[in-house]
Amino acid sequence: MAQTLSRGPVTGTAVKAPGKKKPFVLDLYGTAVGKKYVMAITGLVGLGFVITHMIGNLKVFLGPINEDGQRVYDIDIYGEFLRDLAVPLLPRTYVLWGLRFVLIGAVLLHIHAAYGLTQINRKARSVKYQSARDYQIANFASRSMRYTGVIVLLFIIWHIADLTWGSTGADWSRGDVYFNIDQSLSRIPVALLYIVANIALGIHLFHGVWSLFQSLGWNNPRFNAWRRNAAIGAAALIVVGNVSIPVATLAGIIEFDDTVVSVHDLHGSGEEEGADE
């Protein structure tokens, strides 16, 4: 009988050399469970932004309002409000930039943690199943997170280029939100892009919202049943709210009226201040 290499016994597996002590947060982030915490918390930040952003955007439906006897778009005033946050305590746009940094940081961390987790998970099954899997619970949303995530990321970049920098070819004027929306979304392919991207965002959120309770360990039999509903609600809310804007633009419900005064003229403030939005 051919002799193969001896196998030894197993022992002392729990005796480990003490590792180097890192700060709490880094230590936690070094682990997969920690990365999931980061995913959940940054995801929550993102969710908060998406909801606020949507509420703000829906002001587009309020159309023009009377302000000091002049007709001006409500959403333009809202844009101005964001730039004016905490003025005069802080100079104009400081708070807005602060929020932007938080958001950018959250997105970067979200991506970094997702990348790290994907690497770990690829390594955990180096040889894939050779026959078709028959998933029971894992749904399209949960299995397509990295794809919907990438779609949403690319969309955000395009969206900023489109409506913040005005560099996608449509007629664009800094600070005239209503005008810019109408100009950009009247292009049918662009409107379709917004619709598709928001559906992807909805799918991403559907799993994300359900999942973050798990990752943060917020688990209580009393509200477990509501988690699925919360996820469906959040996703549906975002999709319906955001998609309504390109749809309304295409339908002509959002239609820029050039008799309405620009918000710059209202306040007497102008582009010379050079403020970003």
Binding site: R7, P9, V10, T11, G12, T13, A14, V15
Partner: peptide, 10 residues
């Protein structure tokens, strides 16, 4: 086994 007091042969 973890503490190294028992050796396990499986």
């Amino acid at each position: 086994i973890g503490l190294g007091n028992v050796k396990l042969w499986n």
